[in-house]
């Protein structure tokens, strides 16, 4: 059975390319564009990995990350953001992110990171 990945990202063209890449790598992909709806999707889908943006409509990625880490069975979280400042990385790591990556990314790099996390 394929590992499930939820992409929480508001930019449709980034969702499109990530979905294409990760689908070809054999993963089952879903996505959510609204920050306020993200936790519902996490609870319903029970993904193995959440690829999470920080600046989302209606809710910050940091708040979503905090809620995810408080789940009894929490999925991995790969934070993928244009906010690459040191303090953002530190905040994410303090909350409990699995991996923190910045935009723009190389396709091979993101696929390799996902495969490593879900290996």
């Amino acid at each position: 059975m394929s590992k499930r990945i939820l992409i929480v990202e508001d930019e449709p063209n980034i969702i499109e390319s990530l979905s294409f890449l990760l689908d070809r790598a054999g993963f089952d992909i879903s996505f959510e564009q609204d920050g306020a709806m993200a936790m519902n999707r996490v609870l319903n889908l029970t993904p193995d990995l959440v690829i999470l943006d920080v600046m989302l409509p209606n809710r910050s990625g940091f708040d979503i990350l905090k809620d995810i880490t408080e789940l009894d069975v929490a999925p991995h979280v790969l934070m993928l953001t244009a906010k690459g400042q040191a303090r953002d990385r530190q905040t994410a790591e303090e909350i409990g992110v699995t991996r923190f990556m910045t935009k723009p990314f190389a396709n091979a790099e993101i696929v390799a990171a996902v495969q490593e996390i879900l290996a």
Partner: peptide, 12 residues
């Protein structure tokens, strides 16, 4: 975000 989408899509 624009650059990310362009780079990733162009690479594909």
């Amino acid at each position: 975000s624009n650059i990310t989408a362009i780079r990733s899509t162009a690479e594909i």
